[in-house]
Simulated scan of single mutants.
Amino acid sequence: MTLATELSMAELRAVTGFAVACAEPALAIFERDCPDDPRPRAAIEVAQAFVDGAKRTKVVRDNAWAAQRAYQQARDAGQAAAGEAARAALAAASGAFLHPLAKATQVLHILGAAGHAARAFELDAGDDNEVGAAYIAKARDLAGSNVIGVLARYPAAPAGRGRVGELVRGLDMSLRGQLRSGEGTPSGH
């Protein structure tokens, strides 16, 4: 597999910080529907600790997997919006493990939290796609030049993955458009 580039710890922290900022608002949906399940919040908290300077350890990965199990339980209980909020938390913690492989699937480590959070808000609003599109616009505004610079080193987001995939691809195209227009020019690249 071809390396996209080396990723600095500062870049991994920037990507994870963006993912946390995108996922955290959706926690309200999960916690409303699953008030006794702390796993998605814990995943976001350890991801934020990494952003703030903690080491990237097994604790981050373990909390990401716990958020995955919270998603599965919410989904199985028919709580689709809560499930997507848990997946956003999973994606936020996974940002710390972005690999420097030039594979489209790695883009999900960068933008997946935004896509899952947007889908959670859509589902919570009765499957209103306009709500998701509005959330993606907010996420676009959260992505700083470091995040856009890292994203630009990877292929475009992969096809498929249903509505979340559509949301991620829309955000991906928008951020790459900012880079082409000079709005998101990363410093130092």
Rank of each mutant, 00 (worst) to 15 (best):
G78S: 06
G78K: 05
Q79S: 00
Q79K: 04
Q79G: 00
Q79L: 01
A80M: 07
A80I: 02
A80N: 06
A80Y: 11
A80R: 04
A80G: 02
A80F: 01
A80C: 01
A80S: 14
A81E: 03
A81G: 02
A81P: 03
A81H: 01
A82E: 00
A82K: 02
A82P: 00
A82M: 00
A82L: 00
G83V: 05
G83P: 02
G83C: 04
E84R: 09
E84Q: 15
A85W: 05
A85Q: 06
A85G: 07
A85M: 02
A85P: 03
A85I: 01
A85L: 09
A86R: 01
A86I: 08
A86Y: 01
A86M: 08
A86N: 06
A86D: 05
A86S: 08
A86L: 02
A86P: 06
A86C: 03
R87C: 01
R87N: 08
R87Y: 14
R87W: 08
R87M: 04
R87K: 14
R87E: 03
R87A: 11
R87P: 04
A88R: 15
A88V: 08
A88Y: 10
A88E: 03
A88T: 15
A88F: 09
A88C: 06
A89H: 02
A89V: 04
A89D: 02
L90E: 15
L90H: 14
L90M: 12
L90D: 14
L90A: 14
L90P: 12
A91H: 15
A91E: 10
A92V: 02
A92K: 15
A92F: 07
A93G: 08
A93Y: 03
A93F: 13
A93H: 05
A93N: 13
A93P: 13
A93E: 11
S94W: 02
S94Q: 05
S94I: 03
S94Y: 01
G95V: 12
G95Y: 10
G95N: 10
G95W: 15
G95F: 12
G95H: 04
G95D: 10
A96V: 13
A96W: 13
A96I: 14
F97H: 09
F97Q: 08
F97K: 13
L98N: 04
L98P: 05
L98A: 00
L98E: 03
H99D: 13
H99M: 08
H99A: 12
H99E: 07
H99W: 07
H99P: 00
P100A: 14
P100H: 14
P100Q: 05
L101W: 10
L101G: 02
L101I: 02
L101A: 05
L101N: 10
A102T: 10
A102Q: 07
A102M: 11
K103D: 09
K103S: 11
K103G: 07
A104E: 06
A104G: 13
A104I: 02
A104P: 08
T105F: 01
T105Y: 09
Q106M: 04
Q106S: 03
Q106N: 11
Q106R: 14
Q106D: 09
Q106P: 12
V107W: 12
V107N: 07
V107E: 05
V107P: 10
V107M: 07
L108K: 07
